[in-house]
Design a protein around this nucleic acid. Sequence first.
DNA 1: ATTGACCTTACCACAATGGGAGGGTGGTAT
DNA 2: ATACCACCCTCCCATTGTGGTAAGGTCAAT
Lengths: 141, 141
Amino acid sequence: MTLVTIAQASAITGISAKMIRHYESIGLIAAPLRTENRYRHYSDSDLHDLGFIRRSRDLGFSFEDIRQLLSLWRDRGRSSAEVKAIALRHIAELDQKAAALAAMSRTLKRLAASCHGDDRPDCPILEALDPPFITETHTNP
Amino acid sequence: MTLVTIAQASAITGISAKMIRHYESIGLIAAPLRTENRYRHYSDSDLHDLGFIRRSRDLGFSFEDIRQLLSLWRDRGRSSAEVKAIALRHIAELDQKAAALAAMSRTLKRLAASCHGDDRPDCPILEALDPPFITETHTNP
DNA sequence: ATTGACCTTACCACAATGGGAGGGTGGTAT
DNA sequence: ATACCACCCTCCCATTGTGGTAAGGTCAAT
């Protein structure tokens, strides 16, 4: 069993030492072994978990999702349906966020296209941000 | 000049009273009039700015961008090029984020499609998150 | 014995938003 | 008058994921 320091674990997994400690503090990973001088030392199993977390993060999973995924990974009796359900929900969130961003981008592109972008002050972008009318909209009369 | 309370301003602009106070605290909007009892009262001009902020926020602009956009809106001698530059930079950021999300979604969809999602434990999603090998990658020998 | 590279904990910060505590104000209903 | 309710106020804390910084301990080599 190889043991590495936190800086080495960071270099191997691509997760900053700062974040590794943070993952430990929120209970996402188990507390690693400590040498007499209180230095953390990570085992292969620890490194596996960190790598798992790294890949999950790269796919945009939240810590809460990662917690569940790690737990399922460890559970030999898991059903793949549980994993898939987490993934599908996350996919839906990703698609929703991407669609929202794309909608903003589309709107802005249309506005930017109609903005001449020279020294003159008139600009359809600002006009679009300008509220058209502030009437006394009594929502509660 | 109509003056409305913060709750009315919130109803009109769709920005929570909480956020309106926050915008004031960070200097995004000017401090509104106060009545003797320290209650905030918003003028049409204040409401305009809040509406402007609301629309900018809906397009995903950061507070810093909004600060500049508002300042340009007020500046009669602005050049539309300045506004367009902010918009184009923001569009690039939006597209980049959307592309990143879409890439995650694509990867996950591929994995989810190959996961049978039943009671059996084997799952390509978990396999993808599983680091393939933890060799002793001595980055610093 | 000093330097420099590592490690430790413990704070603070970000963007944008919400929640809640604890207290003041004002109008209305009894 | 008094109780009640709706509104307002200021503070503080939480979120998510990441980074910074400070102040100190440890260790190997010079």
